[in-house]
Computed example of a mutant assay.
Amino acid sequence: MNNLNQRIANLSPEKLALLEQRLMKKGTSGVKKQKITRRHLEPSPLSFSQQRLWFLNQLEPNSPFDISIAMQLSGVLNLEALQQALNAIVVRHEALRTTFAYVNENPVQIIGDTNTVELRVIDLSERYNTDCEAEVQQILKKETEFPFNLSADLMLRATLVRLKEEEHILLLVMHHVASDGWSLGILFREIAGFYEAFSIGSPSPFAELPIQYADFAQWQRQWLSGEVLQTQLNYWKQQLANAPTLLELPTDRPRP
């Protein structure tokens, strides 16, 4: 198995689907479709990328491994519809309501039943002016630096800063174990879709997802094992066989 196949195997379900769509448009048939089905094991194992982040969190529990997005909202805000949209996002994506435990000497992910996101509202409207910009930035910075507890917290935090009656900043913070840069676009698009629908009393505009991230994690663990795993190990052992023991780079201080 070559490096391209390995990179494809590490793609999220959404990225894999997008790649296949683009290749199909070009008439390319070089990617062997990998069937991912709903998992049958609970609790589910972690994907390799999740396990890496979980391990780093065990080493440094207070270090932030977060992804955040701040959105400027202008106009009349329907706070109830926004709360419903955030709740719907957590219900739709299991990864955002997943906690992590250590069971039988292995980390596992546990899908929770929580369907409510606590939307923290900070109201600066009575005293907001240009002099408050530093305070706003400090609030946003503090929210992004607060660490997640992977064994108990939702993997999504939401803070709404009210600047004026029709001016708000919505800050969303997710732990990297449940999201990546690609996820931000999906999150933004779906929150906007939910908000628009709920503001006029319409139902969810999105169909139920056929698979969840835990399904991918289980598939990845089953696929990248045995002969496939050994092939990968042999490849990298060969590639790194003559690698230098010490990488000589110029430094500004003596090497310890």
Score class of each variant (00 low, 15 high):
118 E>H: 09
105 E>A: 12
155 M>R: 04
119 L>T: 03
240 L>F: 12
199 S>C: 04
144 T>Y: 03
18 L>K: 11
119 L>S: 02
51 Q>Y: 08
123 D>I: 04
60 E>W: 03
158 A>E: 10
242 N>H: 15
207 A>T: 14
104 N>D: 15
52 R>K: 10
48 F>L: 05
118 E>N: 09
170 L>I: 06
162 R>S: 09
161 V>K: 06
183 S>E: 02
197 A>K: 04
83 Q>H: 01
45 P>M: 00
245 T>F: 11
53 L>D: 05
210 P>Y: 07
160 L>W: 07
148 F>I: 06
223 W>N: 06
99 T>R: 13
207 A>I: 10
25 K>S: 07
121 V>P: 02
99 T>V: 15
51 Q>E: 14
232 Q>G: 00
79 L>W: 05
222 Q>T: 14
191 I>D: 02
48 F>H: 10
225 S>L: 04
91 V>M: 07
216 F>N: 06
227 E>S: 04
142 K>C: 11
144 T>Q: 15
38 R>K: 10
221 R>H: 03
242 N>D: 15
153 D>N: 08
168 H>D: 13
179 S>V: 04
223 W>R: 05
244 P>S: 09
221 R>D: 08
219 W>L: 12
93 H>I: 02
195 Y>T: 02
63 S>P: 00
164 K>S: 09
194 F>P: 09
241 A>E: 10
246 L>M: 15
58 Q>E: 09
234 N>T: 12
2 N>E: 14
164 K>Q: 14
186 I>H: 04
196 E>A: 10
108 V>I: 11
47 S>Y: 09
102 Y>M: 15
107 P>W: 09
9 A>E: 12
60 E>M: 04
23 L>P: 03
184 L>I: 15
55 F>C: 05
160 L>A: 08
37 T>R: 06
145 E>F: 11
140 L>I: 10
39 R>N: 06
196 E>Y: 04
157 R>G: 11
132 C>A: 14
8 I>D: 05
55 F>W: 06
